[in-house]
Amino acid sequence: MRGKLIGYEFLKDLLGTSAFPMDRPARVSSVTKVTPMTDALAVPSTVAPVGDAPLEHLHFALKHEGLQLQAAILALKKMSSKDIAQAFENSPGSAYLRQIYYHLWELANGKPLEGLPTATGAYTPLFDPEKFVTGPTHRDARWRVDFNGLGSPGYCPTP
């Protein structure tokens, strides 16, 4: 399948990370809804990120490709805390932005983000229990995210 790469594969190429290739990379295609295909995730242009901003592609990837922990962390190591903080200030209730912060940006970069507004919204699990084998939940009040991965945030095996 041809089409512009988006999401995790776009981030891998743009940021030069060593993330494993996606089994089904997301690509812009002439479909009317996000459609899993044999070799790709076909995405209509109306759903795809508009520009080349890494945060837009990571947000898209979390929403439509699911959490690919290795790819997300490697991308976040190369992303500006200013860009992420600004996006969070505009939407402190966004579950996807809270997931990006929760042990993803902070875990990837080994330091907390400071001076941000209080996270709002319902608690959300980091791993979708419909798609992942999950472990006991550890609630993080700061980001309103439940870490439910196997192991610890520092060592969490995923497929």
Rank of each mutant, 00 (worst) to 15 (best):
M1H: 13
K4Y: 01
E9N: 13
E9Q: 12
E9C: 11
F10I: 04
L11S: 10
K12M: 08
L14D: 09
L15R: 09
L15V: 11
T17R: 12
S18F: 02
M22V: 15
M22I: 09
M22L: 10
R24M: 04
R24I: 01
A26M: 05
R27Y: 01
R27Q: 09
R27P: 03
V28I: 15
S29V: 08
S29D: 07
S29R: 03
S30H: 09
T32F: 05
V34Y: 01
M37R: 09
T38E: 06
D39H: 06
D39R: 14
A40G: 08
A40M: 05
A40T: 13
A40P: 03
L41D: 03
V43N: 12
P44L: 01
T46N: 09
P49Q: 08
P49C: 05
V50Y: 14
G51E: 07
G51D: 08
D52Q: 12
D52H: 10
A53I: 10
E56V: 10
H57I: 11
H57E: 06
F60R: 14
A61K: 07
A61L: 08
L62R: 07
H64K: 12
E65R: 13
L69E: 05
A71K: 12
A72I: 02
A72N: 08
I73F: 00
L74V: 03
K77C: 09
K78S: 10
K78N: 11
M79S: 13
S80F: 00
K82S: 02
I84P: 02
I84F: 04
Q86W: 00
F88D: 12
E89Y: 07
E89R: 15
N90F: 02
S91R: 10
S91M: 03
P92C: 11
G93I: 06
A95Q: 01
A95Y: 00
L97F: 07
L97R: 09
I100M: 08
H103T: 06
H103P: 03
L104Q: 15
L104H: 15
L104I: 13
W105C: 15
E106M: 10
L107N: 13
L107Y: 01
L107V: 04
N109D: 07
G110A: 10
G110Y: 00
P112N: 11
L113C: 07
L116F: 00
P117A: 03
A119E: 04
T120S: 15
T120K: 15
A122R: 14
Y123M: 15
T124W: 03
P125R: 15
P125G: 14
F127D: 07
V133S: 02
V133C: 02
T137A: 06
T137L: 01
R139K: 14
A141E: 04
N148Q: 11
N148A: 12
G149P: 02
L150A: 10
L150M: 15
G151D: 02
S152C: 06
S152H: 11
P153L: 08
C156P: 01
C156W: 00
P157W: 06
P159E: 04
